[in-house]
């Protein structure tokens, strides 16, 4: 499955793992996790498949099993889609 960002966005970060994300398409603001922000950052550069995203995230995550990672990323993508931040390309 290929994903793209619904619209460009802007972020505000504090040091501790949460990111405020502003979507310029809808004008809505979301509090998202670092991983979600990372996905949006990757998609801002261009569309990517679920596998490509998984691969990129796995580079930074060494304390989690392959399956856990897959499950949580799938869930995250669904949530981002439901929040209208990403959509199927």
């Amino acid at each position: 499955m290929q994903w793209c960002a619904s619209a460009p966005g802007k972020t505000f970060e504090d040091e501790e793992g949460l990111v405020v994300y502003f979507s310029q398409g809808s004008g809505s603001t979301h509090l998202i996790t670092e991983v979600a922000a990372f996905i949006l950052e990757v998609l801002a550069m261009g569309p990517a498949t679920t596998d490509e995203l998984l691969h990129q995230i796995a580079i930074g995550a060494d304390d989690i099993t392959e399956q856990e990672l897959q499950e949580s990323v799938h869930e995250l993508l669904e949530e981002l889609q439901a929040s209208e931040l990403i959509e199927a390309a």
């Binding site: 505000f12 970060e13 504090d14 501790e16 949460l18 405020v20 809505s28 603001t29 509090l31």
Partner: peptide, 17 residues
């Protein structure tokens, strides 16, 4: 956390949105 404070203040703002 400033991110939480951001969201709270935005939610209770009269015109943030």
């Amino acid at each position: 956390l400033k991110t939480e404070a951001f969201m709270f203040a935005g939610l209770h703002s009269f015109n943030y949105k």
